[in-house]
């Protein structure tokens, strides 16, 4: 191979070199972080239309128009992860395994896996203990948190991930479809035992 390449004409070699350099340029594009949402857009992000039973429903137009960033943007997922620990979600849900609150890791969602359901659960609270965070978090923060909670209970791997844990890992990391691993185990609520 080396001898072949060294005997190739100069034009071919320089062409190959150019292609190599150009392909390395692809690595320069960085994910866009949106630190600031325009206030009207932020207000519009609150306009979810859940079904009457509080499960699923239509996401806000602004959320769809923005390309559903809170599901897949690594910065938003990281912010969500930070909020998860700062606002003591782990106090009830632990690291996704559940404690006094339900688990996320088993992939079983009481109110459905849709982003709207998770958003409404956090914003308005749910019966039997889930408090409302409407006056504690901004709408953007609730979306970031909802996006992160969805990744903990995800069945399919994501290409984006939040920052790594500082502490010891107690479950598969967020971009490795944590719920899928418990689906394979006996922990699944539909198993014969239940």
């Amino acid at each position: 191979m080396t001898t072949k390449l060294s005997s190739a004409p100069l034009a071919v070699k320089s062409l190959l070199m150019c292609m190599l350099l150009m392909s390395s340029l692809c690595g320069c594009e960085r994910e866009k972080r949106q630190y600031r949402t325009d206030p009207p857009v932020a207000a519009a992000l609150d306009e979810v239309a859940p079904m009457p039973n509080g499960i699923a429903g239509a996401p806000p137009d602004a959320y769809v128009a923005a390309g559903e960033p809170y599901k897949s943007n690594a910065y938003d997922l990281s912010q969500g992860k930070q909020l998860y620990s700062e606002f003591n979600c782990s106090g009830c849900h632990a690291e996704g395994g559940g404690a006094s609150g339900p688990a996320f890791l088993n992939g079983w969602w009481r109110y459905g896996p849709q982003a709207v359901s998770v958003f409404v659960s956090i914003r308005d609270g749910r019966p039997r203990g889930m408090p409302a965070f409407r006056s504690r978090l901004t709408t953007e923060q609730i979306w970031q948190l909802a996006g992160y909670v969805q990744t903990i209970g995800a069945y399919s791997a994501k290409t984006s991930a939040p920052g790594r844990n500082d502490a010891m890992q107690s479950r598969p990391s967020e971009n490795r479809s944590p719920a899928k691993s418990s689906y394979a185990s006996d922990q699944w609520p539909y198993s014969a035992a239940q």
């Binding site: 630190y35 600031r36 949402t37 932020a42 930070q82 901004t138 953007e140 923060q141």
Partner: peptide, 14 residues
């Protein structure tokens, strides 16, 4: 706060 110090952890509270 996000225009004055972009990226900091204080959200724009309406």
């Amino acid at each position: 706060p996000q225009t004055i110090k972009p990226g900091n952890n204080m959200p724009n509270v309406p």
